[in-house]
Simulated assay, not measured.
Amino acid sequence: MGPLDRVDLDLLEALADDHRATVVALAERLGLSRNTVQARLGRLERADVFGSFERAMSPAALGFPIQAVLSVTVHQAHLPRITTAIAAIPEVISAHGLSGQIDLLVRVAARDTQHLFDVDARILGIEGVERTETSLVMGEVIEYRIRPLLQMARGASARADSGRRER
């Protein structure tokens, strides 16, 4: 997929405003046909523009009020098998591969501190995991957000459009 154009960015911004908007509502808001919106959404989805469509839920509401981030150091040769084993642990909410001294950053949820200790022990028990360091999540100070990037992309798109018109 090439660069996002103004219509793509308008559509993404509308979805950022109301992620539950229907195709019809998006079409009305943007002054586009339903078919155009449907086609654009399909193209954006095939290009992996969208992340998971799973609704974000509060682990605390499900009985897991404690969240922690585990910095995991592994034996590199075992990384694919280790990530598969970590993905099988239900308390793991997300994991990111990193460059640098830490190999994986794993976010977990737990019922209490003993449960967190047990989750950490399961991760440490995976063959090839060398060590973990656990940090409790005290609160989310910046929620997941995309709007600042959309605004930057819109500015880049406008500059590119301006440059094409000047030629």
Rank of each mutant, 00 (worst) to 15 (best):
L11K: 08
E13N: 15
L15I: 12
D18C: 09
D18H: 15
D18M: 10
R20W: 14
A21F: 11
A27N: 01
E28R: 14
R29W: 11
L30I: 14
N35W: 14
N35V: 15
T36D: 04
V37G: 00
V37N: 00
L41N: 03
L41R: 04
R43W: 05
G51T: 12
G51K: 12
P59I: 02
A61R: 15
G63R: 15
P65S: 06
A68F: 05
V69H: 08
S71L: 07
V72C: 03
Q76E: 13
A77F: 11
A77T: 10
H78V: 09
L79R: 12
L79Y: 05
R81I: 04
T84S: 07
A85M: 09
I86E: 02
I86N: 04
I86G: 02
A87L: 07
I89K: 06
P90M: 06
V92M: 01
I93S: 09
S94A: 11
A95I: 12
H96L: 15
G97F: 13
L98C: 13
I102M: 06
D103L: 10
R107V: 13
A110K: 07
A110Y: 06
D112F: 00
T113W: 07
T113F: 14
L116T: 05
V119M: 03
D120S: 14
A121F: 09
A121D: 08
R122F: 04
I123A: 00
L124R: 13
G125L: 03
G125I: 00
G125D: 00
G128T: 01
V129Q: 08
V129H: 10
R131L: 01
T132K: 03
T132E: 00
M138A: 11
G139V: 00
G139Q: 03
V141D: 04
Y144I: 05
I146W: 15
R147A: 15
R147G: 10
R154Q: 06
